[in-house]
Nucleic acid binder design. Structure first.
Lengths: 217, 217
DNA sequence: GTCTATAGCAGGATAGAC
DNA sequence: GTCTATCCTGCTATAGAC
């Protein structure tokens, strides 16, 4: 193995371990020492490969987060296309499926949302990256897709708020696992997650009104 | 002024400033030096009054967060009582009103949700406190209130998921302000917040299905 | 009770050997 | 490219003067 290949492997390991630790504990709670220990390389490696802790953090988003988000979006677009319609129902179902099940493994998804949520609560330069390269194009496309399918009178703002509300649930049920488990008494096993997807779709389409087929007054 | 009163004032200032900083930056990113500087007292005061940084953090929840949450819950109960009914609509409206407007000032509410969200993402002993003293009694009461009003077939789990979904939106629209602003183009001024409350109530009751169809005005 | 001074340690970053 | 050794800064916590 050439030195170059070896170097690349070290870099990859650093990105992987850094992502896991940043997602789990947050930027400030993680030390470079901790990352390099877990990645089984030298303390100086972070500086050599990335130029510092901050830049490693940004690179995690550039090299890991953004590509993963794009995989999810691709999955969503394909799921929607497969349904052959862009009705609110179809969009909601495709959204929920892509973001709650989709192409990501459980652990990947958890990391992904943890990192995102940290940036939402306390935006850094990484948020800029995410907003420009991921959020903006996605929402732009989504708005275009939905506009034709939604009622005429619905303004762009209401449309966006609807989409954001679906995201709110997706993020929450991924992020607030402790609270959800505490309140429902359910562990996050496969069966429960399936019920969650079902619930999010149902709630997104009909709100409380849809529960148990009752009409709101 | 007695020394005891002076000491109490220092303690209060420390709790206030600590809460603001912990909410804004998170536990790890805040140093005791920073807190004591802003609170205009000595570096050693945190240790003297609370016994360390960790214990100060816990005290913020005990002495500030929990009482505030109880004020919100009280507001909710009174709002619900004022409507004279416990229909899903009434409950949703009372919830949204209490948690999005309610008795808290804007800044207070923002702090409150920031602290909560941090604990959700990375629970510490403070979460235990919140879960036992605030969440558990609240959800227990809420479930009891709603059970009679909801359709027969609706299990406890679905009921709880519905309530959690409303919370998901409440938290999200408070927490993810940057993203919401980015996507809708709206600043969080009074008018926008009113539209948000309206949206959350509408979405909670009818989901996407309600959008535009029954246009109020 | 409050403050200064400092102990004692962990952090990020880097220089220089290999 | 990698590693060791080290610098320097900033942290929490505490001892002891006032």
């Amino acid at each position: 193995m050439t030195q170059k290949e070896k170097s690349e492997l070290t870099k990859e390991r650093l990105l992987n371990e850094a992502e896991a630790l940043f997602a789990q504990k947050g930027y400030d709670a993680v030390s470079v020492r901790e990352i390099t220990t877990v990645a089984r390389c030298n303390l100086a490696a972070v500086n050599y490969h990335f130029g510092g802790k901050r830049k490693l953090y940004l690179e995690v988003f550039r090299a890991r987060w953004v590509p993963r988000a794009e995989r999810v979006q691709k999955h969503f677009r394909e799921g929607l296309a497969a349904q052959g319609s862009a009705s609110p129902t179809a969009v909601t179902q495709a959204l929920a499926e892509a973001f709650l099940v989709g192409p990501l493994s459980d652990e990947e998804r958890h990391r992904h949302y943890q990192l995102m949520t940290r940036e939402l609560g306390q935006p850094t330069e990484a948020f800029e990256l995410v907003a420009e390269q991921v959020m903006r194009p996605f929402f732009k496309g989504l708005a275009k897709t939905l506009r034709t399918a939604m009622p005429e009178g619905l303004g762009k703002e209401r449309l966006m708020l609807n989409i954001l509300s679906i995201f709110a649930m997706v993020l929450y049920f991924n992020f607030a696992r402790v609270a959800v488990t505490r309140i429902t008494g359910c562990e996050y096993d496969l069966a429960f997650k399936e019920r969650l997807v079902e619930h999010i779709v149902e709630f997104s389409l009909n709100g409380l009104g849809g529960s148990g087929k009752e009409k709101p007054e």
